[in-house]
Design a protein around this nucleic acid. Sequence first.
DNA 1: AGGGCATATGCAATTATGTTCATATGCTCC
DNA 2: GGAGCATATGAACATAATTGCATATGCCCT
Lengths: 205, 205
Amino acid sequence: MPAANGAKCPAMALAEAILVCLTERPMTGYELTKTFDTSIGFFWRAAHQQVYRELQQLRASGFLDSEEVIQTGKPNKTIYTVNARGRRHLKEWSRAATERPPARDNLYVKLYALDCVDLAAVRAQIAERLVMHKARLALYERIEAKRFSGRINDLRRTGLKLGLQLGLTVERGAIAWCETALATLDQHLGKALRAGRERRQKASA
Amino acid sequence: MPAANGAKCPAMALAEAILVCLTERPMTGYELTKTFDTSIGFFWRAAHQQVYRELQQLRASGFLDSEEVIQTGKPNKTIYTVNARGRRHLKEWSRAATERPPARDNLYVKLYALDCVDLAAVRAQIAERLVMHKARLALYERIEAKRFSGRINDLRRTGLKLGLQLGLTVERGAIAWCETALATLDQHLGKALRAGRERRQKASA
DNA sequence: AGGGCATATGCAATTATGTTCATATGCTCC
DNA sequence: GGAGCATATGAACATAATTGCATATGCCCT
């Protein structure tokens, strides 16, 4: 299989997510992995095994240069840098249309057949989501206040700010929805509880 | 490999998405495929090949009963029904915690390194998304008006309405964000245009 | 002395998802 | 008479993502 393919720009976007991270600064696989746990990890997750595998492929494709750094006391590390070809590839890839990916959220599937699920369990799952969305929102707000409060001129940070704003919008919407959903489900659960109490009273009468 | 596994409830949720569809009514693979193009397809997509493959596995796992219907003029069809075991499995599965899946949207990756992309192309992609989100919102609003306007009592339709409300929230947020993003990018593109004009004027002077 | 964590990397296997190709009939439209 | 669509199904291949296993050192805490 030839490594070089100029024209074709397929999906496989973990590769591009890594390239994009490395345009900020050269990094090791280990550092990249930590990035996929935090910043870019907000919308794209990858385990360290995936990162290392993809790095090798990107180097084989000629998009990355690598430099091994000998260390004492710790294992040696390899620092990867996006080269000119990698940057060209990224710009080319950015021109390809982006499809909106489907949500593929198990919670939505459960919602789709609410009469077939364990209602109390699903309620609890939505409550957990609410906590998570609130935590995420608080985090995004902290980042906004700390790093994106003033006027922003450079393009790089403009993109990051837009991403952050998208995150804020998504979390706020999700929080509002969770609260509505919990209220709605509680009505149904209350009904079930009352019905259960009545049955038990009749039985004991 | 044994088909029966009571305790284990792994991810693999296309299977559950199909089960959930079939709890509404028994269907053929062909009908299911159409469902994955519309209603459940709003958040979970699957091609007919995936659907047929999964149906066979679900039948092998003992979650579905199947009945072949001989037809003339058209190919014969197989109608699948969720049996008691399938329903038990679904209820059991509904109890497992749901992780929020990562967005994995290429557009966000491009946003993440806005200084490395083709800015005009990305702007155009956001504009396309805006059109798509507006169309989707309009569709959801039509569905809401037609099928979920009055009071809803049964659990099944409550779940669907909650899903619809989530969709409305998501699309409205996305539309607002796209409009902000386009305005922001236009400032940068305007700047670049003006700079280009100045360069050309100096060159011709 | 042993447990756990941070650093640093990677192979192998499995699961999940997506794409290409294949088949077969009858209808309608041009 | 051919193009294209609706009906109806599936094998085989290809890509992507997750999970289990594996290694190695130094530090801190108990």
